[in-house]
Write a protein that binds this DNA or RNA. Structure first.
Length: 111
DNA sequence: CTGATGACTGATA
DNA sequence: CTATCAGCCATCA
């Protein structure tokens, strides 16, 4: 599969994240059919230019904002998440993990 | 080809 | 809880 397809799948996976929910890089990559490509997802977000892409719903595996605290992107993500009803405290999303909340919510229990 | 780099992850102490 | 370390993948000098 070429990078174009991979990127397309990843964007689709991110777009599938419902408002008010969050997902981890690894989860997104896995659901995009690209297991182990968490860093690829990160690279895409760093280069993404699609305003329709809810990149702010993508967090690290520990439920933390991936961007460095104080950076513009960090504040942007925090703000957007809170605007969607996601409780963000000290750069961390309310909840111990990010992705697990999805699996049964978005993608469905069976999968 | 080799090594460095990054919006990463999991294991271990 | 934080700190280190070792994988991992794609890209680039």
């Amino acid at each position: 599969m070429d990078s174009e397809t991979a990127a397309k799948r990843i964007r689709a996976a991110i777009r599938a994240i419902p408002k008010g929910e969050v997902a981890g890089y690894g989860e997104v990559a896995r659901r995009a059919g690209l297991p182990g490509r968490a860093r690829l997802v990160a690279r895409l977000l760093s280069e993404n230019d699609d305003a329709k892409l809810p990149w702010h719903r993508v967090l690290r595996s520990d439920g933390r904002i991936a961007l460095p605290e104080g950076s513009a992107g960090y504040r942007e993500q925090c703000q957007r998440l809170r605007a969607e009803g996601v409780a963000v405290v000290n750069g961390r999303v309310r909840g111990q993990r990010a992705a697990p909340t999805l699996d049964s919510q978005i993608w469905g229990p069976t999968d």
